[in-house]
Design a binder for these strands. Structure first.
Lengths: 188, 188
DNA sequence: GAACAAAATAAACACTCGTTTACTTTTGGT
DNA sequence: ACCAAAAGTAAACGAGTGTTTATTTTGTTC
C-alpha cells in the first residue's frame, strides 16, 4: 500500500483538525479569549485557513459547538439513574470514549460575545432543549429542561471558570450526592 | 440658594459617577464587551478618568464588584423563608431600594477575562462565600454555599446572557416554585 | 484680580484581533 | 513531464482596545 501515513495536503483533514482544535480551545477559554491564532497553532496551520474553511471565527465556533452538542450525552441511560449518572459525568468526565467534547462548558464560554451568544442560544434550543423537552414530556417539560441546563451550567461555571473550592477538582461525597439528587428531582 | 444643581468639578462625585456607571455596564455586558468608553460615556466623562481615579479597567471592575457584593442581599431575613425570598429577589428584582446593584450578574459577566475572573473569584470568596459559610454553619457549609452560588449563577446566565425562554422574562409559577424549593433545600 | 493647583479633556500611542490579499507550494490528471 | 487548480503560507490591513501624554479649563487662595 502506497498511501502515505499522513497526507500533508488534505483539505478535509485540515478542516477537521481545525474543528477539533477549536473545540478544545473553546472549551477551556472564553470565546473572546480564544484567539484564532491559538486555535490554528494547535492545529498546526495558519490563521487564514479558518476563514478559508469556515468563513469566520464565529462560523467556526458554530460548527464546533454544533458538532459537540449531543443530547444523548444527557439522555441515554435509564431515568431512575439520571441524577447519579449525570453527576458522575459532570464530575468524573466521560470514560475514554470516541471523540466527544463536553458540550456544556462551551456554552459557558460563549457568554462573552454577543455573536457567540446568539449562535449558542440557537444551537442550544435546537439541539438540546427541543430533544430534551421531548424526552421529558409532560406540561412542565420546558421548565425542567431549562432547570437542568441551568444547574449544569452553574456547576461548570464554578468548576472551570471561577474555580470555587467545593466545586473544583475533587468534590465531597455530599456535594456529589446533592448534585445527583438535584438533577434527579428535575426528571421526576 | 446659589448651589449649582450639579457640581461639574467634584472629584469625589465624578469617581462615584464612574463607579455607578461601571456597575450598570458590568451587570449587563460581559467584561470584555464592556468598554471603558461606554462606561465613561454613561458617566458623562472622558475615558482617561478611569485610569486617573481607578488605575485601570480591571481595578475599576474590582471596585465596582466589591461595592456591589453584599452578602446581606442573600442572608437577611429568616431562614424558613429563604428559598421563596431569594426566588422572588432573583425573578422580580429587589424593590426600589437604596443603591444596590444585583451582584450576581456581575460575577457571570466576569467570566470572559482572565484578570476579571481572578478578581471576581477573590471577592466572591471574601465577601460572599466566607460570610455565607459562617451564616450556614455546620460541616457542609462550604458545599452548601457553593451550591447556592452555582444555582443562582446558572439561573442568571440563562435569564440574562443566553435568554432561555422558561427562565427569561416572566417565569411560570412552577419554575418559581422549583427555584424556591431548590434554594430552600440548600439551607436545610 | 492674578496665580497656582486640581480636574477634565483631546488626541495619539501601542497593541491585539479577525480578516484579506498576494504569493508560494504541492497535487493530480492528461 | 507539464500545467492548471487546489492548498497553504506570509504579511499586511483596518478596526477596536486600554492607556498615556500634553493641553486646556475650572475653582480657590493670597
Amino acid at each position: 500500500m502506497s498511501t502515505p501515513a499522513r497526507r500533508s495536503r488534505d483539505a478535509e483533514r485540515t478542516a477537521a483538525d481545525i474543528l477539533r482544535a477549536a473545540q478544545q480551545v473553546f472549551s477551556t477559554r472564553s470565546y473572546s479569549e480564544a484567539g484564532v491564532r491559538e486555535i490554528t497553532a494547535l492545529a498546526n496551520v495558519t490563521p487564514a485557513l479558518v476563514n478559508r474553511y469556515f468563513g469566520s471565527k464565529e462560523k467556526l465556533f458554530e460548527a464546533a459547538l454544533a458538532d459537540a452538542l449531543d443530547v444523548r450525552y444527557l439522555t441515554e441511560g435509564d431515568r431512575a439513574d439520571f441524577g447519579r449518572r449525570l453527576a458522575s459525568l459532570f464530575i468524573d468526565g466521560r470514560g475514554g470514549d470516541e471523540h466527544g467534547v463536553n458540550p456544556l462548558p462551551m456554552l459557558v464560554m460563549a457568554t462573552s460575545d454577543a455573536g457567540a451568544r446568539e449562535v449558542a442560544l440557537r444551537l442550544l434550543n435546537e439541539q438540546i432543549m427541543e430533544p430534551l423537552v421531548a424526552w421529558f414530556g409532560g406540561p412542565d417539560a420546558e421548565d425542567r429542561a431549562a432547570q437542568l441546563v441551568a444547574v449544569a451550567t452553574g456547576f461548570f461555571t464554578f468548576r472551570l471558570l471561577l474555580p470555587l473550592e467545593p466545586l473544583a477538582g475533587d468534590v465531597s461525597p455530599a456535594m456529589r450526592r446533592w448534585l445527583a439528587e438535584t438533577l434527579q428531582a428535575i426528571v421526576d
